[in-house]
């Protein structure tokens, strides 16, 4: 009995040594990033926490104002709420649409079609270009009053459209479209996930007479749930951080009439147009908390709909 327990403990010890070694290798690999993070990110991050309690315009020294910035944000700033509204509207449409689109295309590409690799690369291109200024400028050309979209509408339906990008009701949706178009990276992740779904499940289902829809609903979706969840969390974080398209398309104004005033864009305006670094820092921390909350909620609810193979269920 005694020898038995001793053997187990040595075994456990050697296993934990192996795990330690593996951890060390892992840390070694991320060292360059860690150094960068500690030197260039952590300092500014902590400084911004301090600045969020000050009034600071870059040129004069920061003045401590306590929680004034936070009070103004929640009690006395309609543009803050407008920015939240715009960002949430954007995300409500962008995240599900992009995921659905990415999954759809991934499923098509998963069927071994000829030239699959070519199409995979082709569909990924927008994601490489998408964050760039050039594409945002292109978007402006497409959806402006005399833009390509209106020319096509006029030619095909005789419909004379307004400028989609500068009409308050439609401006935000042109940006949703721009984001959905960049479905490449979730698509690649879905594709990897689809390849991992055991084919015998589909075969068994076929023998039982399941149709394509039932197979998708009963096998693909549940098996893919962790990947969907992973993509969703990433897209939520990305969505909150969206900045470049709105900045370029509206020329940094968030216009027309604040219809594209993303949270990050408003933060940028406060910081770099109006030089209220304290207020902008406070906004950044509130954003961090919002993103944290959404990620937290996603993780908490995930146990009800995400299935992991190692779950003892």
């Amino acid at each position: 009995m005694a020898t038995d327990s001793k053997a187990t403990s040595t075994e456990r010890q050697s296993r934990s040594q192996a795990a330690n070694r593996r951890d060390m290798i892992g840390y070694a690999f991320i060292t360059p990033w860690l150094i960068g993070f500690l030197c260039f990110s952590l300092g500014p991050v902590l400084a911004s926490l301090y600045l969020s309690f000050t009034k600071f315009d870059l040129l004069s020294p920061a003045i401590w104002v306590g929680t004034d910035n936070y009070a103004r944000m929640f009690l006395d700033d309609p543009r803050f709420y407008q920015a939240l509204k715009v960002t949430f509207t954007y995300m409500i449409f962008e995240v599900p649409l992009k995921l659905a689109f990415a999954l759809g295309i991934a499923m098509v590409l998963d069927k071994a079609i000829r030239g699959g690799a070519f199409y995979r690369a082709l569909f990924y291109i927008p994601s490489l270009l998408g964050g760039s200024v050039a594409i945002a400028v292109l978007w402006r050309q497409l959806f402006d009053g005399n833009g390509t979209v209106n020319q096509i509408l006029l030619w095909a339906f005789g419909y004379k459209g307004q400028s989609w990008i500068s009409t308050p009701e439609t401006a935000i949706y042109t940006l949703v479209l721009l984001a959905v178009w960049q479905f490449g990276s979730p698509m690649i992740i879905f594709l990897a996930g689809l390849r991992q779904v055991p084919q015998d499940l589909y075969e068994a289902a076929s023998i039982d007479g399941a149709g394509a829809f039932r197979k998708f609903y009963k096998i693909t979706l549940p098996m893919l749930a962790p990947v969907i969840f992973f993509n969703m969390v990433l897209q939520i974080i990305e969505g909150f951080k969206a900045f470049t398209p709105a900045y370029v398309v509206s020329g940094g104004t968030g216009g027309p009439i604040d219809a594209t005033l993303f949270y990050t864009l408003y933060l940028y305006q406060e910081a770099f147009s109006y030089f209220r670094m304290g207020y902008a820092s406070a906004m950044a921390w509130v954003l961090l908390i919002i993103i944290g909350c959404f990620t937290g909620i996603s993780f908490l609810t995930s146990k009800y709909w995400v299935y992991y193979e190692d779950d003892p269920r």
Partner: peptide, 20 residues
């Protein structure tokens, strides 16, 4: 094994930190 919970959390955490 497709994804284990631990691998997933680690991957998500790292990506989020990198992104921020």
């Amino acid at each position: 094994g497709t994804f284990t919970r631990r691998q997933f959390v680690a991957a998500a955490g790292t990506t989020a930190a990198l992104g921020l």
